[in-house]
Design a protein around this nucleic acid. Structure first.
Lengths: 341, 341
DNA sequence: TCTAGCACTCCCCTAGCACGAGTGCTAAAT
DNA sequence: ATTTAGCACTCGTGCTAGGGGAGTGCTAGA
């Protein structure tokens, strides 16, 4: 669609712009050895590229800057990636080979990625709605203090200590645990909650001792598992302070606020969840005007072909895609392989 | 030490400066109804106050600004506080009356405080070194998957799922749990770890089944409880973006970095831990030059006269002490009363 | 002891100007 | 038919000069 010369010039312009951040003019380009054209010729090309919507002049005498569409072109067709070295891969893999539960591991990966790229990194944690309740247990700490333990997935446990208002016998406790396990085992969290409340209503559990606070805690823990966690975790927010794109602290604050709200980003991550492979969202493609001038790179992670979630980085559109894209990809790959176990 | 008129003028100057942030000149002051002095007289006083080190002129014709020493004077002897309303107190108390474990409650209080004050809020969590191990339990999820549970304080539980490389019988598991409870119960975390490792060395536990990975996990959990948590938790960092004192993003980044390192702050919190009541650290008193222009307000929180930790806020020295100080105090008070239970 | 007056200093804003970088257009050269 | 050289033009930037304003210290008089 784009003539060789046009591509070549555009690519060179992007290179200069990405490294300097200043608008690039025809003179600068024509002086490059690989260009070998007069500035006048370059000007004609640049004017065309501007008409096509790939470039933009901040003002009459200020050289050109890529538009979002220009970035899109660059990322889609002109960009070549640097494969990260094996050593680097080994290093990453080792840093993530810590014995952590799933959520912690994901957060660790996010931190690592933000450090690597010097930008903010995001992880969408796997949704827990489909998770099955595996086991309910009551541990007797004393006659009145009971530890309620709920086991869900692989490394996923919720617990809480309950103070009863009168004493309870260990066999009563056992009976309750047995009952709950019988009723709720293998149910999804939502189902388990329904079962629980219907059991209470039908008075199947009305005894002469305080089941109720135990049941309430069980229910609380189920609901906490369902809701009380951010599905989107952000690390390295402070890295964004380094870019003059975000020098305006009000703009930065809006971005941080948008991170907290999660709105908008979740949809993008969902898109990325559907399609395999790496995705780049540029500026307006991020769907929210606060992300103007930002790009988001996402990649799903999976365990044995089942996609669990998405991780990614966000930073100024003027970023080193050549380096960052492979880093995101690699981190996602390593993460997927480590989650396998 | 300071003449009435001097005090009066200084206090008025502080009031104007705190609300406007601009250097205050003799004219502005002399026009205040409560001053009723000519600008020339005011000038003489200001010149004296400057010689004494309470004020400072940014440049020849720019009015005066308080020095750290000036802030100190203001906070120590001139400041009168606005008591927060009962309604407000009720509101706060209610927001914190959620059923959470101790650490979570403290973090919640910190969040609340940062929202209230519009600055960053810090909490020093109670140290866990003195905590006693209350109970060790192994829950059998399947013949090879064991949930290791360690119970510490009131609402403090650590757990992890361990995959064994061969099957284990429930009575073996029971035996191990009994042994550990016998040996380690009521010991401090450090002592418990020692006991554990010596038991392993003395081969008291060498059986024909895989105790070792269970013991290793137990030890891991103990050490995690000891170390793997930030003793200083910060919330509302982004609030600081609103102050032009922190418009320089590099300065802000250094501050955030200092938050992460915790160095310096911990010492101050320790000081506050020793002495009862509220403390204000101003500028250079914060001990680290990155906190230049910042003030830190701290207050210990306690349970039944036993001081557990400290909470506080940090923001620009030019803050509304009249409002913020009582807020910190109140939050600490409420926190202390809620932790009682 | 206070105050009015005055000379002085320094910041800040604006206008003006020259300069440089970059542009579009046109006409000549290849 | 391209490419290039040349030219007029635009616009941001940096520098300088100058006026206005806010504030000061000092002095002399009330």
């Amino acid at each position: 669609m784009l003539n060789d010369r046009y591509q070549m010039l555009f690519k060179n312009l992007m290179g200069l712009y990405l490294s300097d951040g200043k608008p690039v003019g025809s003179n600068t380009l024509s002086k490059l050895p690989e260009v070998a054209l007069s500035s006048a010729t370059v000007r004609n090309v640049l004017a065309d590229l501007e008409k096509m919507g790939f470039l933009h002049s901040p003002h009459t005498s200020a050289g050109r800057v890529p538009t979002d569409k220009g970035y899109r072109l660059f990322v889609d067709t002109l960009l070549t990636y640097q494969e990260p070295s094996k050593v680097h891969e080994q290093d990453l893999r080792q840093r993530l080979s810590v014995d952590l539960n799933q959520d912690r591991l994901l957060q660790e990966a996010s931190k690592l990625l933000s450090g690597l790229t010097g930008m903010a990194s995001l992880v969408m944690l796997p949704p827990k709605t489909q998770e099955k309740l595996q086991q309910v247990d009551f541990l007797m700490l004393s006659a009145r203090r009971i530890l309620v333990v709920l086991v869900f997935g692989d490394q996923d446990v919720q617990n809480r200590i309950v103070e009863l208002d009168r004493e309870i016998q260990s066999d009563q406790l056992q009976k309750l645990a047995n009952f709950l396990n019988q009723q709720c085992l293998g149910l999804s969290l939502v189902q388990a909650r329904e079962k629980l409340s219907s059991a209470v209503e039908q008075n199947q559990l009305q005894g002469d001792f305080p089941y109720s606070s135990l049941l309430k805690s069980t229910d609380d823990l189920l609901s906490r598992q369902l809701s009380d966690r951010q599905s989107l975790v952000v690390s390295g927010k402070t890295n964004l302070l380094d870019y003059q794109e975000f020098a305006d602290s009000q703009k930065l604050k809006r971005i941080y606020h948008a991170f907290n709200q999660q709105q908008g980003l979740l949809e993008l991550f969902d898109k990325s969840l559907q399609a395999p492979g790496l995705k780049v969202f540029i500026g307006s493609e991020c769907g929210n005007e606060v992300y103007q001038g930002c790009s988001l790179i996402t990649r799903p992670y999976a365990v044995e072909d089942e996609v669990l979630g998405v991780l990614g980085v966000i930073g100024p559109s003027r970023m080193n895609y050549q380096k960052v894209v492979p880093q995101v990809d690699l981190t996602g790959k390593i993460l997927s392989s480590l989650l396998k176990k």
